[in-house]
Design a protein around this nucleic acid. Structure first.
Length: 561
RNA sequence: UGGGGAGUCGUCCAAUGGCAGGACGGCAGACUCUGGAUCUGUUUAUAGGGGUUCGAAUCCUCUCUCCCCAGCCA
């Protein structure tokens, strides 16, 4: 193992930590945290942050905490807490006993606020939300100081105590940091630290009527937990002076905040607001719809934690806004599944084939390789008989150039079975081909020709009498354009109407009859699929995780132009 | 027009004064009982101007473009 792995390409955060270790800045410690707000499901963008925080800690022999940033009870729910823990675990990370909540620190946060009042750095403000907005100024004009800014320490202490005691109505007063109303950085214009809000908190119940704001709570939470590197996304860059200000004024242990660019993925959306819109407006069936870029969606779609982790490693970490091509994620899952997924035979758009010279009523068991990439996965038997199904796409009455598959008079191989030649077609009333008549060459049993003759195509197939009927859901990109909302500004206009195609009369090989939800495999020549929880006894439902690379489809598409 | 950030192949990430490199995608070919996988080749980039230097993606300077901030959200 050691020495054989290629060194990971470094990035600026890794370099900062390496330097801090060398200079002994935090006593050779690395301690990170993943701090989700429990108001939504995790998505692939969070996975980047999770991999970064947990990954960096592991790499440097440090620790990573899971901390719920639950400072706003009006938006947060327990349902989300549970799903977030499940998703982080599924991704393969372990916070051990270090599960924390910002709400664990409500008492500490209150005490620190009293301290800031005492040193004249915080005050109770009676301005309404509207008034405060007016006093704040604009991006180009400085703000004005609140008329309540210079209350005495005693009065502030008294008022803040009454706020905590629930003596004032919601929104009537706030506790503000006394910093600089003329700052070019709007976050420094006397930001709110506590607001009055009567809402039942998922952990503290009704014991608090004041709740801390993110900027105030986050830095102190990091400090209390002994975090060394507080990694967050770019939009918090101009909150850093405030992060630093609170800790400096309170003379508390001071972690370093480092910002990186959040992940954007082509052909999808990763903003919480847009994701919620998709769910609520019914464009998807839920947070775990296999088309969703949520962790739950990818899991149900058949993605593996390994593939997602590998993806997060490959995309790198930088400070530049970027949009990663979905093709890279698809490459990562194919790469992983190619090595691990057992191969199966399945026909999603069946075309009936009768082998005219094969004895009626006869069945044979043929050997099929479970995974050509991994001989250790062994072989299995698949039944062959006179009546089969092949894929409609694998037959053309009038084959175009470069089409190597079956056509009248042409010989192809049925994988692991025999060479067959098409001798005729059967049509329905409308003139559509509904059945193929073929002959087989008994000498080619197993798929090899003793006389050395070649065929240009190998087809997958199932035996009609043995196959299991199944439903197959074919997924494509949720959005038809790589960059969303470019035309109309409304991302919903870019939804791909063909993002799901449900095929109800598919046939899969018998070994799949009782496959359990979550089971993943490759349907030969089609793609990777996994069993959905919607499956019922004897009738499995499959989700297509991703197609195989399809050279022929590319050729055909190119022709159409 | 305040403050904070960022500009390198189509995309993402490297190169930290010394031959602009890797991955994905694309294209072409080899091989193949999956038109898969694998292998080979190939295409394309330092936002612009000026300067420092033997030498600049990197340092200086001017300009341009893009992103974030005016929640009692995080």
């Amino acid at each position: 193992m050691a020495g054989t792995e290629e060194p990971k390409p470094s990035h600026f955060i890794r370099e900062i930590i390496t330097r801090d270790m060398e200079t002994n800045k935090y006593g050779k410690r690395v301690h990170t945290r993943f701090p989700p707000e429990p108001n939504g499901y995790l998505h692939i963008g969070h996975a980047k942050s999770i991999c970064l925080n947990f990954g960096l800690a592991a790499e440097f022999g440090g620790l990573c905490n899971l901390r719920f940033d639950d400072t706003n009870p009006s938006k947060e729910e327990v349902e989300y807490v549970d799903s977030i823990m499940e998703d982080v675990r599924w991704l393969g990370f372990d916070w051990q006993e270090r599960l924390f909540y910002a709400s664990d620190y409500f008492g500490k946060l209150y005490e620190c606020a009293v301290e800031l009042i005492k040193i004249g750095k915080a005050y109770v403000c009676d301005l309404s939300a509207d008034e405060m907005r007016e006093y704040r100024g604009t991006l180009t004009e400085p703000g004005r100081e609140s008329p309540y800014r210079n209350r005495s320490v005693e009065e502030n202490l008294d008022l803040f105590g009454l706020m905590k005691a629930g003596e004032f109505p919601d929104g009537s007063r706030t506790l503000r940091a006394k910093i600089d109303m003329a700052s070019g950085n709007i976050n420094m214009r006397d930001p709110v630290m506590f607001r009055i809000m009567r809402a039942t908190h998922h952990r503290t119940g009704d014991s608090w009527r004041i709740y801390p704001m993110y900027d105030y709570a986050h830095c102190i939470s990091d400090s209390v937990e002994g975090i060394t590197h507080s990694i967050c996304t770019l939009e918090f860059e101009d909150h850093r002076p405030l992060y630093d200000w609170f800790l400096d004024e309170l003379k508390l242990y001071h972690p370093r905040q480092i910002e990186f660019a959040r992940l954007n993925l082509s052909h999808t959306v990763l903003s919480k607001r847009k994701l919620i819109t998709l769910v609520e407006k019914g464009h998807v069936t839920g947070w775990d719809d296999p088309r969703m870029p949520s962790i739950a969606g990818f899991r149900r779609r058949g993605y593996t934690p390994e593939a997602i982790r590998n993806f997060c490693e490959r995309i790198g970490v930088a400070k530049r806004d970027s949009v990663v091509d979905m093709a890279l994620l698809e490459f990562c899952i194919r790469e992983d599944l190619n090595l691990k997924a057992p191969r199966k035979m399945a026909v999603v758009r069946p075309l009936r084939v009768v082998i005219e010279n094969y004895p009626e009523g006869q069945t044979e068991e043929l050997d099929a390789v479970n995974n050509p990439e991994d001989p250790a996965m062994g072989t299995r038997k698949i039944p062959f008989s006179r009546v089969l199904y092949i894929e409609q796409d694998d037959f053309r009455e009038d084959p175009p150039k470069q089409f190597f598959r079956l056509a009248p008079g042409r010989e192809v191989r049925l994988r692991y079975a025999y060479f067959i030649t098409c001798t005729g077609v059967v049509r329905d009333d409308k003139g559509d081909v509904v059945e193929l008549r073929c002959t087989y060459d008994p000498a080619t049993r197993g798929g090899d020709s003793p006389d050395g003759r070649k065929v240009k195509a190998t087809l997958h197939w199932v035996s009609a009498g043995h196959a299991v009927e199944a439903e197959v859901r074919l997924y494509e990109h949720l959005f038809k354009t790589p960059a969303l909302g470019a035309g109309t500004g409304n991302f919903l206009d870019d939804l791909n109407p063909g993002s799901i195609e449900t095929l109800r009369s598919c046939y899969v090989e018998p070994s799949l009859k009782n496959a359990l939800p979550g089971f993943g495999c490759q349907f030969e020549r089609l793609g990777y699929f996994c069993v959905d929880a919607d499956s019922s006894e004897g009738r499995p439902v499959f989700n297509r995780t991703v197609t195989l690379k399809d050279t022929w489809a590319k050729i055909e598409k190119g022709k159409k132009g």
